[in-house]
């Protein structure tokens, strides 16, 4: 069935680096097709032209770190038929969720020349902690092909095909040589969800887990292997607390005692 009309799509930024929005703009070959298929009604990173809501689809980047964020996400949700979060910040609080493990007042005093101008919450929380989310697209940043798949699925009214298997599956399909087996490199690939195309291992680096946990992550077993490869507790805490620190699985893995079992 040919499609009717062009749905209105909005792209929103909360606390984030804009990298996921840039992934969307990085769809250079497909941008014209996107503009043909949907009406970009609100996308400040790309255009100052704004069409009023309601919107058929909202793509939300960033986490909630201020009272203003917390109020605004309610407004976005109220105007959106479907809401999809894009990236590790929106999905799991992002790098800035490291504040959840520290004293925000100390940060404020240490970092800013005029701390009294800074108004912030003591936590960075994912969008789903505040409003219902229809779909989460993971990654730091997101993968543009997955974004196109989500848009395509939205246009066709079908569920999107975003595998939740491990990064290892992508590594093997790509023909990468396992960096953990062949180099002894610590790698979170076995417990991390696919989607990046096994980017870091393709460049001989262990996976940093930026897509968050895979569908059935066995972090305890991986931790025992990481320990055997020489990773100590503080190093493990850091590796599980980079992009998805507030994800319950990675948080538990960062805090688990030696041997991996919480």
């Amino acid at each position: 069935m040919p499609r009717k009309g062009r749905p209105k799509v909005a792209v929103w930024k909360f606390t984030s680096c804009d990298g996921c929005q840039l992934s969307m703009l990085d769809c250079e070959d497909e941008l014209l097709a996107i503009a043909d298929a949907v009406e970009i009604a609100n996308f400040r990173e790309a255009t100052s032209a704004v069409v009023e809501g309601p919107y058929d689809l909202s793509l939300v980047e960033g986490s909630v770190t201020t009272l203003s964020d917390a109020r605004r996400i309610q407004e976005v949700r109220a105007q959106s038929r479907l809401l999809v979060t894009i990236g590790a910040c929106a999905t799991a609080g992002g790098i800035q969720a490291l504040r959840n493990f520290a004293n925000i007042e100390e940060f404020r005093q240490a970092v800013y020349a005029r701390p009294e101008h800074i108004s912030t919450l003591s936590t960075s929380t994912p969008i789903q902690d505040h409003v219902p989310v229809d779909f989460e697209l993971r990654g730091c940043p997101i993968n543009k092909d997955q974004l196109l798949e989500v848009l395509s699925a939205f246009l066709d009214g079908r569920s999107s095909n975003v595998p939740t298997e491990s990064v290892c599956a992508e590594c093997k399909r790509r023909g990468n040589v396992c960096v953990m087996v062949a180099r002894g490199a610590p790698c979170l690939g076995p417990v991390t969800q696919a989607g990046c195309g096994a980017l870091c291992p393709a460049y001989h680096r262990g996976c940093y887990g930026c897509f968050g946990p895979q569908e059935s992550p066995n972090t305890a077993s991986l931790i025992r292997r990481l320990e055997a490869l020489g990773m100590d507790g503080p190093a493990r805490l850091r590796v599980f607390r980079t992009f998805n620190a507030s994800n319950p699985v990675f948080r538990a893995a960062s805090e688990a005692p030696a041997g991996g079992n919480p």
Partner: peptide
């Protein structure tokens, strides 16, 4: 199973494992 990572490496490294899935990839125009 307490040791198994369910990561798929054994099956994809195996020279005989043959399981596959198929997926439709539509373009944005439909």
């Amino acid at each position: 199973a307490r040791r198994c990572l369910a990561c798929t490496n054994c099956t994809l490294a195996c020279p005989t494992c043959f399981c596959s899935t198929t997926e439709e990839v539509p373009d944005l125009s439909g």
